[in-house]
Design a protein around this nucleic acid. Structure first.
Lengths: 245, 245
DNA sequence: GCAAAAGTGTTGTTTATACACCCATGT
DNA sequence: ACATGGGTGTATAAACAACACTTTTGC
C-alpha cells in the first residue's frame, strides 16, 4: 500500500467516444442516506486519488488510468489546479474521504488531468472492479465535490485543443472513417459541419493517411478507412496551426 | 506572520514591457559560495512563496504581487503546475529554502501563475525592498530551482494568449500609440509585422478606441493615442476569435 | 430496385499578404 | 530645410462558406 499525501490529489477527466456520443468515465460512490439510516445514495465522481510523496503528478494520474482501464501510454495532459480552501465543503464528501482513506482530510488541492481514450481498447473488467462507468457527457448534471466544474473545464479545453492539434485521433480506433472523425468533431464542437468542406480541409493534413481497407458489412456504400500517422504529424509544419472549423 | 504549508508553493512569472523590451520581475538571492567560505554568489529566482492553509492559490499569488509591485487587481492567471518529486534537487536551493523559511522542506509542488503588469504603475520602492529587478527576458539564461523552465512556459503561454485575446493592453499604459502596441506584438511573437496590415487588423476591434490626444514632445509627427475599452471587449463577439498574425 | 450513407466540384465572398509614398512635428 | 517616425490604399492570392447530385453496397 502506498503512503498517500492528504494535501494533494489528482483527478482525471477521462473522455471516450463511442462513434456517436462523447462520454466520460466516472466512478460510482455509495454514501449513507442522511434521511434513512440504513439506506445508501448513489452518486458519481471523477476518478482520482491522493498522490504519494515519491511519485510525479503525471505518474499518479497514469496509475489511476491504468487501474480503471488497463491502458498505459495514453493521451494525458494537465488541465487545471483547483485549490480553493473551501472546495471540499459538503459534509458527505468530507466524511466519505475520511472513511475510505482513513486519512485526516482537511484542505485538498487537486491537480486535474484530462485523458483521451479509445473506449474499445479499454478493458471493461477493470472498470467494473472499480465501479466505473462510461456516461454520456451531455447527461451528466451533477457530481461529487467540485467535479462537475472540473468536467466542464475539461470539455472547454478539449474543444479548444481540437482546433489546434489533432487530438481527435486519440478517441477513435486505429482505423476509422472520415464520417466517424466528422461525428467526433461535431459532437465535441457542438455544431454540424458541412461534410464536403470538412473533408477538403482535413484531407490537406498529410498525417491523415488513407488505407486500402474499407468498412465491411454495412448496408450502404462502404467507407474508406483512414489512419493517423503520428510520425508525419510530429514532423509536419502544421503542428502549430491546426484547423479552424 | 502567516503559517505556511511547506508542501505547496506559488511562483509568479511577472511580465512587463518598457516600450521596447519584454521584461520579467525577478528576485535576487544571495547564497554562500561553496568555494569561498565567506563569499556569496548572487543569482535570481521567480518571486514566489509557500501558501497558507487558509488562502486560495490565486490569493497567494496576489499577495506576492502586491508585496513586490504595490499593485492589486491586475492580470493574473494560472500557468502550470510543476510537481516532479525531484524538482528541487540542487543542494543550494534546498539549503536556501530551509534557512530562509525555517520550514522542513522536502518535496514541493508549485503552482505557477503569470501576470501582466504596467511597469510604470508598479512601485519601484516595493521592488527594491524585496530585492526585485526587472530584467529583459532575452537576457535571462538561468534561474534558481526549475524557474527557467517555468519562465519559458510563461513565455509560450503569453505568445499563445496574445493571438487569442487582447492581453497586450495589460502591459501598456492606459493610453498608448499603435506603434507601441505593434512593438509589443513584435517582441512577444518574436517577428516583425507589416505595419499597414497590423493597423488594418487591430483597428477592426471596436474595443480599441481612439482618443483625441496625441503624443507630445516627439521630434516627428505625433501619434494618436488609443485606449482599450474592457467593457466593449467583454460584450463583443470577437472574444473567442482573436487575431492571427 | 430501393434505402442508406459515401464521395465529389464550383462559385462567390472574405481574409491575408505584399508593397511605397506623403504628412506633421522638432530641431 | 531636413530628419524622424506617423499614417494611409490597392492588387493578388489564399481560405472559407454555401450548395446538390452520383456511387456503391446490403437487403
Amino acid at each position: 500500500m502506498l503512503k498517500l499525501n492528504p494535501h494533494l490529489s489528482v483527478d482525471c477527466v477521462i473522455f471516450g467516444f463511442d462513434g456517436q456520443n462523447l462520454k466520460a468515465l466516472l466512478t460510482k460512490r455509495n454514501i449513507p442516506d442522511p434521511e434513512n439510516a440504513n439506506k445508501f445514495i448513489t452518486d458519481y465522481k471523477l476518478p482520482g486519488d491522493f498522490i504519494t510523496d515519491e511519485e510525479d503528478l503525471q505518474t499518479a494520474a497514469n496509475r489511476i488510468l491504468k487501474e480503471l482501464t488497463g491502458l498505459t501510454n495514453i493521451f494525458l495532459k494537465q488541465l487545471w489546479v483547483f485549490g480553493s480552501p473551501r472546495r471540499i465543503n459538503k459534509e458527505r464528501d468530507i466524511n466519505w474521504l475520511r472513511e475510505t482513506t482513513g486519512l485526516p482530510i482537511e484542505r485538498v488541492v487537486t491537480i486535474a488531468y484530462y485523458s483521451l481514450i479509445k473506449i474499445a481498447e479499454s478493458q471493461q473488467e477493470n472498470a467494473n472492479i472499480n465501479n466505473a462507468l462510461w456516461i454520456k457527457v451531455e447527461e451528466i448534471s451533477e457530481l461529487a465535490f467540485d467535479h462537475f466544474e472540473i468536467l466542464q473545464r475539461g470539455l472547454k479545453t478539449l474543444r479548444t485543443r481540437l482546433q489546434i492539434e489533432p487530438v481527435g485521433f486519440e478517441l477513435l480506433p486505429r482505423q476509422f472513417t472520415l464520417r466517424q472523425l466528422q461525428n467526433l468533431y461535431e459532437v465535441i464542437l457542438g455544431r454540424e459541419l458541412d461534410n464536403r468542406n470538412f473533408r477538403k480541409k482535413i484531407l490537406k493534413a498529410e498525417y491523415l493517411v488513407a488505407t486500402d481497407d474499407k468498412e465491411k458489412e454495412v448496408a450502404h456504400k462502404p467507407a474508406r478507412l483512414f489512419m493517423f500517422d503520428k510520425d508525419i504529424y510530429e514532423k509536419s509544419e502544421m503542428r502549430d496551426l491546426g484547423f479552424q472549423f
